[in-house]
Every structure is written in structure tokens, then in C-alpha cells.
Amino acid sequence: MALGVISKEHLGKLIAAVSRTGRFLGPVDKGDGVCLTQVSAGDMLALDYVNFILPPKRMFFPRSEVIATHGSDGMTATPLPEGRVVLFGIRPCDVLSLVYLDKVFLDEKYADPYYRSRRDNAVIISLACRQPAPTCFCTSIKGSPAGKAGADILAVDIGDVLLLESVTATGEAFMAEYGKLLDKPSAEQVSSRQAQVAAADAKMARVSIDQATAKLRARFDAAAWDELTARCLGCGVCTFLCPTCHCFGLYDEQVGGQNRRVRAQDACAFPAFTLEASGHNPRTRQGMRMRHRMMHKFCYTAESFGEIFCVGCGRCIRSCPANLDIRETLTEVSK
């Protein structure tokens, strides 16, 4: 484990140094919210934000990507993405989501080459939270405002400087590579980090998810599902903004004699998600679809991967047009 500090003013130098050999993506305020965007040395990074609008899964598992083109000469797979990418400023909850997505896409037998390539190329510098939003509840699940799981380096904002701590060998190598830009942290800085993390932790909302898996299992057939989700409009906001939702479909497109195969994200909130070729749809009501989403996150993944696929980022709560709150749904159905 290596420690180092970098002053916020010198981030531009780090960006310039990284940009010589790869890409640097960081938080940029685009007016409609802060997004993880490719930056160059002169750009201003927004360091005062709650979280990105879109989850970082987009960097590894885009909403849609062309995976092959095909024509009379057969099918040609899209080349794997190359080049190092440094992702700076992802929040610890979101970084944890990548650990979960790895379980899905980096399965021993059926690893996804595109996902793997992007993961292998990435250096993740996460940024600990200072001010959780009213929708945040990571500490109720497995997260922490300064959680390290999934990050290569954890950065903590302690005023004028960022305190960096390497978490993985990749992170340690990265810090060694750019060691010239880093200073040794003082004891005072290390202790202010502790205080900073504890303060953010204390502000976090709590929700009890004790034995949620077993309780949800037992209530699969509960009539409450329809009543609870009556206000659900049936859009895909919660799934598309969720850092762990990963269902996708494959589509062949043809335009003007050219063909390609596209992988695009899909959402269990849409009726067409389960529509069968016969015309039969096993999930006819919105309540059934919402139940599936909850069961998938809190039961199926817990049973098959040993993890609840929710990191408490609160995006689904914040952006739901009908103000459905996953915390309440969870409390209600696990009664």
C-alpha cells in the first residue's frame, strides 16, 4: 500500500502526463449534472459533486455497441478496445458495482471479451464521498463513503489536496509511475482523512435489509407487489441508471446492404423484455416486472453470485418520475 498527496492545482499535470500514453476521464460539470468525461490538462475538473448522473458501467458495458459486422464474406467481430484509460472520480459505491459486474461478465467459462478488455485497460481512481445525498444508503448494504473494493487507488478530498492510497498492484504501479507528481502525506493529513470519512459516514441514511433475500423469497406471491408498484410508470430509468443492472439484447441491423450486430441494454421494466415469439408474455403486469427487478437484485444474484446487486447509490430513487423508493419497497416487502 502506497500513500501520496497531490494538490488539486496539480491535477492538470497528472492529466497531461497520463494523456501522453492514454486517456484520462474525470468529473466534468456539463450544466445538466456531472459526467465522467474525457479531459485534457487545461480542463476544469468538478470535484464538488454528489455522483455522476450515469453509472460507470457505461465505461465497460456501453448502452449499445456494435460487436460484429457481417456480409457476404462472413462475420467480422469488432476489434477489442485498446489503450489505457484512467477513470478518476468514480464514487466508492459505483466502484463496488464493478466488482459485482465482474462476477457476471468475467465468468470463468463465458467471459465477455469486450468487458474484459475495457476492465483490463482501466485504472480506477475512486474519490471518497464528502456529502452524501438524501438518496444515498450505501452503508446499509456493503458500501462505505470511502470503500476500497474495486478501486485501484482511493482518493480522499481533504481540502486543498487529495490523499491517494493504492489498493491494488495496478494502483501501486500507477502511483510509482507518477511518483514525481505526488508528495508524502503528513500525519496530520492522514488523520484528517479519517475524520473526513467518519463525517460522511455519519450523514448516510440507514435502511434495514436484514435477511432481505430470505424475506423476499418468501413473499414472491404477495399481493402487495401490485399495490406497491401501482404508481410505477413502467419506464427504464431505474434499470438504465442502476450501476449493476446488466441485461442486454442482441440485434441484427441491416441498412442499404450493410449488416451489423448490436448489443444494447434492455430493461425488465419493459413488457417487450419477456415477450415470447408466440405472443405470450409471462410478465403481464407492472407489479410482476418490478418484482422481478427486486428479486433479481436481492435474491437471484445473492443466490448465484453471493452478493446483493445493489450498492446504495440512490440513482433509481432520485430519478424515478413517480418517486418509487427502493428503500421503502424493500422495507415493505420484507416485513
Partner: peptide, 24 residues
């Protein structure tokens, strides 16, 4: 270009009640 195709605009709209939307 900002669109992520979550169809929230369609679902929230009282006029968008088609059983099967042309886009799907």
C-alpha cells in the same frame, strides 16, 4: 444525443397509451 432510451418521456405522458409503441 443525451437520450438513453429509458422511454420515461413516453411512459410519463398521458397520451402515450399505445399497447405497443412503434419503437418496440
Amino acid at each position: 444525443a443525451k437520450c438513453i432510451r429509458c422511454y420515461a418521456c413516453r411512459q410519463a405522458c398521458p397520451n402515450c397509451y399505445c399497447k405497443s409503441c412503434f419503437i418496440e
